[in-house]
Design a protein around this nucleic acid. Structure first.
Length: 511
RNA sequence: GGUCCGUUCGUCUAGGGGUUAGGACACCAGAUUUUCAUUCUGGUAACACGGGUUCGAUUCCCGUACGGACUACCA
């Protein structure tokens, strides 16, 4: 069997889209599963759209996601360089071969001339206004120009492109691993530009040449490439590489959550979830687009979620480590239909992965939040809090956000809860409880509870009735984790101080 | 407009000529929790439509509808 060599080949035109991460992931899974090679190639043939920093961003993102590159930009390898802008001469050579063998030709048409051609065809009622086997005979190219005219133009340094001479009548067949046979008639493909007037190749040429030279066995890419795949097949044929042609797998697209259409940054922004793996600062607008990492998603959880967007193992197992994914992945089980992006499911995965972490790791999340707030806390205490908060956290930041009341005393009290629960009876019990606590040598969760039971029993009031009021007095909130353990963590003095403050503050309000 | 691709619960999907069409997320209800969350139990909910083929079609075939991608000297 052929050695598995796959590539992820993004353009450095901005941050890596989350869909790109999935594409990279599927490539990576196939490579690892078959002891193959994962290649990172940078397709920077469009000088106008090049964004500084994008390349580094892409590499960092893949690294964060746990997708390791074996060969390519940033790593090196036997087929270097892996940046297409550095491979110009290679493409030139193959373009020349196509030219020599009559499968390509020079074209000198200006943008204006091309526009005019399309307008003319449109006016004549032609459906497809393309540069093809018919229209090329009316344009300025090496097929219509005499040898002298051609030489004159060349000598004058007239800008030109090289176009593929697509056959007039030919059925082009492509066996896609996901969609099986796709057939397109050559009359539907136009004479694509292979070499631009700036001397750079277009995607089509560069892609085919590089995939061949880099001995790529499988091209796994987004479905947006399916319409041009037959063109690529034609190129392989013309270049004499039909037998070395990689297998194609065109992935279903990631769709926006509501309505239809490709998932875009705009949709994600509107619905409030990230679209990029890492926070990306747009070099032009200077705007920060928050990343999955910074939003608190764990890489393993995101990978698991992404893997399931279009693929499934055929069993009911949902939680998969990267190693398990590598083992179970198969292209055959990738679906055909587009997949709507559901951030809620991503959050569920995150919660699952977060809970699977040790208390010590979770405590570290809290500690790092506390460091930012400049609050001291011992590791032991942080572990206690982690245990307390674990079941209610989806993101690492939740330990701080939902547990900050343990460190910061309330300055105000939830008014709804106060209105409902803060009454004379509650005040009576809570003041008595405060006194009872003050008489205690020390405080822990068990003692806090038994003491409360004693106080309520002696006053003839049910514990449940005043518990929410007690929570309110200590935390200012109407809901939260186990109050007794929370009290233990805060410590006796702090609890008493807080109750006293509540008694004073809310007495005024109630009266 | 043209070409290509697609269509099973709200979402991700399993399945496949005869099934009570299965699971997960979400949602709803009950139980647990003195609260919220968690957890547990249960529930609502799907084969786009029309023709064939067949004893029988959600499954195969053909149309239609709907959706998407592509239609650049962008990738």
């Amino acid at each position: 069997m052929r050695e598995v060599r796959v590539r992820f080949a993004p353009s450095p035109t901005g941050a890596l889209h989350i869909g790109g991460v999935r594409t990279a992931l599927y490539n990576y899974l196939l490579a690892r599963q078959n002891n193959g090679t994962m290649i990172l190639r940078i397709e920077d043939t469009d000088q106008n759209r090049y964004v500084p920093g994008a390349e580094e961003y892409i590499m960092k993102s893949l690294e964060w996601a746990g997708i390791k590159i074996d060969e390519g930009v940033g790593v090196g390898g036997p087929h270097a360089p892996y940046r297409q802008s550095e491979r110009k001469d290679i493409y030139k050579k193959y373009a020349q071969q196509l030219l020599d063998e009559g499968n390509a030709y020079y074209a000198f048409d200006t943008e204006q001339e091309l526009d005019e051609m399309r307008e003319r065809l449109k006016a004549a009622g032609v459906d497809n206004q393309q540069y093809n086997s018919i229209t090329r005979l009316q344009m300025r190219n090496s097929l219509t120009l005499s040898a002298d005219e051609l030489k004159a133009l060349m000598d004058a340094g007239t800008p030109y492109v090289i176009r593929l001479k697509v056959p007039k009548k030919e059925e082009i067949r492509l066996n896609d691993l996901i969609r099986s046979w796709v057939m397109v008639h050559s009359s539907q493909i136009d004479d694509k530009v292979l070499m631009k007037s700036d001397g750079m190749p277009t995607y089509h040429l560069a892609n085919v040449v590089d995939d061949y030279l880099m001995k790529i066995s499988h091209v796994i890419r987004g479905e947006e490439w399916l319409p041009s795949a037959p063109l690529h097949v034609l190129l392989y044929k013309f270049l004499g590489w039909e037998n070395e042609m990689p297998q194609f797998a065109h992935l279903p697209l990631l769709l926006k959550p509501s309505g239809d259409g490709k998932l875009s940054k705009r949709d994600a922004d509107q619905l409030g979830f990230p679209i990029f793996p890492l926070t990306w600062k747009d070099p032009i607008t200077k705007e920060d687009a928050i990343g999955y990492k910074e939003a608190g998603y764990l890489p393993d959880a995101l990978i698991n979620f992404l893997a399931f967007l279009g693929w499934n193992p055929g069993t009911t197992q949902e939680l998969f480590s990267m190693d398990e994914l590598i083992h179970e992945f198969s292209i055959e089980r990738i679906g055909k239909a587009g997949t709507k992006f559901d951030i809620l499911k991503a959050q569920w995965f995150n919660q699952q992965y977060l809970r699977a972490k040790s208390d010590s790791e979770l405590a570290d999340y809290l500690l790092s939040s506390l460091a930012k707030e400049k609050i001291d806390c011992s590791k032991d205490k942080a572990i206690k809090i982690a245990q307390l908060m674990k079941e209610r956290a989806t993101f690492p930041k939740d330990f701080w956000e939902q547990g900050k009341f343990l460190f910061i005393p309330p300055t105000s009290f939830d008014e709804q809860v106060a209105g409902k629960r803060w009454n004379d009876e509650a005040v009576k019990v809570i003041s008595a409880y405060k006194d009872a606590l003050a008489a205690l040598p020390s405080l822990d969760a068990v003692i806090a509870k038994t003491t409360l039971e004693e106080v309520t029993a002696s006053l003839g009031i049910g514990t449940g009735k005043i518990l929410q009021a007690l929570r309110l007095s200590i935390t200012g909130l109407g809901a939260g984790p186990d109050l007794m353990i929370s009290m233990e963590i805060m410590g006796k003095e702090e609890v008493i101080k807080r109750i006293a403050f509540a008694l004073e503050t809310m007495k005024v309000k109630v009266a």
